[in-house]
Design a protein around this nucleic acid. Structure first.
Lengths: 346, 346
DNA sequence: CTGAAAGCGCTTACAG
DNA sequence: CTGAAAGCGCTTACAG
């Protein structure tokens, strides 16, 4: 009877399923079932269901997510590991993944590795302790081991952009053939002395772009001209590298940048060179960028299908989460398209 | 004795504090204390502590984050609500917040409202069920109520960029005076017919920029020339709006864009007009953008101190989380600086 | 058709 | 110095 008194209607006491049950004088398991839409399944009377639902609505009760997760082992959250959330490739993908995930009832935690192996491993370690339901990872060098481990434990993982670990779900684009296409695009327009500016990186996507370039050059019997820019360097250093490369290779009439921020860095340098030499250098960049449509000349780019990528990534992950026994090694390769602009016109 | 048999050394059985306790034949509360660094405090012998720690290390045990959260009521996670994670303002801020949060031991969940009230409320609702420790929000119209509610419940919240709700922690920049400065910058260089392109928005930061412009014009006795672009419109529509504005205001010799993507949209249009008219229009944009240093002429921008903003945001939040009783209404206003480039030179 | 009990993996008084 | 017990808020067999 002092029940009424001791029932803690304290200021911010959060409502629990127990409170609901007591108030309505039924068992909390019944409340749980009804809230989770298992009322019919458990053949709970329509009246009771309605009554409970109405009350829940009235008092604005929402189940405690953490408690639910602890009990079910499912957190309805996924982890997104990218290189840099503020990047023009990863940013839009993060936005789409978040939107799509939400439509499936998942929240997303994100973290940026900045290309550092230790950071990446640390992030994944932390995420794993959070019991997330699945992981979307743009892998950096050195996380093969932990990814393999996760796969071994049956944790749903989808890799994207690069795939250092074979036999794991992967979504990416046709880096090699797209680069060959870009070379052909230039070749057809009369450019023969095509340089290639890339990162000093062993990541699979960079490797594929490089080998696409090399293969195209080999096919045409043209000697390749490549510069490898260290990833860690400051933008200023990168620019110097690019400038030196272009100066030394004065005979170049075209250049392909293996990724857009390299092209951005190069653009200022090329402007200088262009002014000085008076001759025009054709340019194609891998990955589009907002600036490319604005600079003069506008820059031709190999556009990756960001939306399609995101869709496949999330669908693959959800599918894996739903049927954890399914095979973990779908390999999706989407086609990029060349967005022609002024920089590749003769 | 069949203990040994029944002890589930099954494939992927996750280790629990209980397993550790049993194995070591001590109470799990002792294990808990030691793991949480409260060994000395509880005066547990150094030997036992070392032994437990060593074993924990050996078997690679990590406490179950969700269980811990449920027990302590703290999740070590914060929620970040922005307008668009892929935006050139929010992206970098998200990166820094994530990095700083991690250094304080917090993970972050993010979500983009895309400026929609319903989406925003939905996101916050979902986040709140996840029992996050604190929230960083770039508020959109219509979430005043829920934010006020949260404050009322003592939930740590930091608003940034705009502050529709007074009396809540806020970190932003001097939008009004920075805009006045930009006007002055143009005025000093001889420009008198200064137009203002802004969003049809009631958000405080946009309002402040507008009133800065209006005040400056009034001071000089110049009639303001303003166009309000609807936020929801497509980029194409926005461009049309801007184009019409500039055509009708042929007498303009300068224009200030109240936010960078408006300037980006305008840049293509202005190029056309510029070519047609042969006269040069001075430009200043609020918020810098990667493209601004690359286009020709390069664009003068009002740079918000993104890093400082992020630091203040996270520090304010952490501080609030640590001492929930402290006042929730710090108002931090940071100064922006004008990055002069070619577009504002006479 | 509905409820009592055990359990998810941790922490926190409390007792000794 | 250390352990047994209760509890965080839920779900899931199980019993009736």
């Amino acid at each position: 009877m002092d029940l009424g008194i001791s029932t803690d209607k304290m200021v911010n006491k959060r409502l629990s399923i127990n409170d609901i049950a007591k108030k309505l004088e039924i068992a909390k398991s019944t409340v749980s079932a009804i809230i989770n839409g298992k009322g019919d399944e458990r053949r709970i009377s329509k009246e009771l269901q309605l009554k409970v639902l109405a009350y829940v609505e009235e008092v604005g009760f929402h189940p405690h997510h953490l408690a639910k997760s602890l009990a079910t082992g499912r957190s309805s959250s996924i982890g997104l590991v990218v290189e840099d959330i503020s990047d023009s490739f990863f940013g839009p993908i993060a936005l789409m993944i978040e939107t799509l995930a939400k439509s499936y009832g998942y929240r997303v935690m994100y973290s940026s590795t900045l290309g550092d192996t230790n950071t990446a491993n640390e992030i994944i370690e932390i995420f794993r302790r959070s019991q997330l339901d699945g992981y979307i990872i743009a892998p950096t060098k050195g996380i093969e081991k932990v990814v393999t481990e996760m796969i071994g434990e049956g944790i749903p993982v989808v890799l994207f952009d690069r795939d250092p670990v074979k036999g794991v779900n992967f979504v990416g684009t046709n880096n090699k053939s797209a680069t060959i296409e870009a070379c052909t695009h230039l070749y057809e327009r009369g450019f023969r002395k095509i340089g290639f500016v890339t990162l000093a990186s062993t990541q699979s996507q960079m490797h594929d772009r490089l080998s696409g370039y090399q293969e195209a050059m080999a096919d045409w019997g043209i000697a390749p001209n490549i510069v490898y820019i260290p990833f860690q360097e400051s933008k200023k250093e990168k620019k110097k590298h690019i400038e030196r490369f272009l100066e030394n290779k004065n005979e170049l009439d075209a250049v392909i940048f293996a990724t857009n921020y390299l092209c951005i860095a190069g653009l200022e340098v090329i402007n200088n060179l262009y002014n000085r030499r008076g001759s025009r250098l054709a340019i194609v960049s891998f990955d589009d960028h907002e600036a490319f449509a604005l600079v003069s000349p506008t820059i031709t780019a190999i556009q990756q299908p960001l939306e399609e990528l995101s869709k496949h990534i999330i669908e693959l992950l959800i599918q894996q989460i739903k049927s954890p026994t399914g095979k973990q090694s779908h390999h999706v390769e989407l086609p990029s398209v060349i967005k022609q602009r002024e920089s590749s016109q003769k």
